[in-house]
């Protein structure tokens, strides 16, 4: 079973219309965005997204000249109720897993916390051994 999920990251300078252009490119390929976040630094940002077909998204955006990369992340299922995030983040803390960045969505089938960590395999083992549930790659497609 594959517990890592491929996220695409796109470099974008802060300028009106950049996000729309990226979204439009994905739409034209009929690619669905499941979750996304924008990390911002002075003057530019990185758009990170989980999509149903990361490979095609990568190809499309690269062909349009965007600076794109793919990164393996983990999606942890959370209870969609008060305390859901606490349970998961406590588990990560106890396992000594440092989160580089994270974002979340609630919806089908669960609330999900998406995290990027330094040591992916160690993190997966630690979460599973503590009874945590991870999204599988196949669930997104």
């Amino acid at each position: 079973m594959t517990y890592t999920i491929t996220q695409i990251s796109i470099f974008a300078e802060n300028r009106p219309g950049r996000l729309a252009a990226i979204a439009e490119a994905l739409e034209s390929e009929n690619i669905n965005i499941l979750a996304f976040s924008i990390a911002e630094a002075s003057g530019f940002g990185v758009i990170r997204a989980l999509v149903d077909d990361p490979e095609r998204a990568f190809k499309k955006l690269s062909s349009l000249g965007y600076v794109v990369s793919t990164t393996e992340v983990i999606g942890i299922k959370m209870h969609d109720r008060p305390g859901g995030l606490r349970e998961i983040s406590r588990m990560l803390g106890d396992a000594g897993i440092n989160i580089e960045y994270a974002y979340a969505y609630t919806g089908r089938p669960n609330a999900v916390l998406i995290i990027r960590v330094d040591h992916v395999d160690e993190a997966i083992n630690a979460i599973l051994s503590k009874g945590g549930q991870l999204i599988q790659r196949t669930e997104l497609a």
Binding site: Q7, S9, F11, A39, A41, G45, V46, R48, S62, G65, Y66, V67, V68, S69, T71, E100, R116
Partner: peptide, 11 residues
């Protein structure tokens, strides 16, 4: 930025 380069995704 140069297009199609390895870009780390980290700010």
């Amino acid at each position: 930025l140069k297009s199609a380069q390895l870009f780390s995704d980290k700010l």
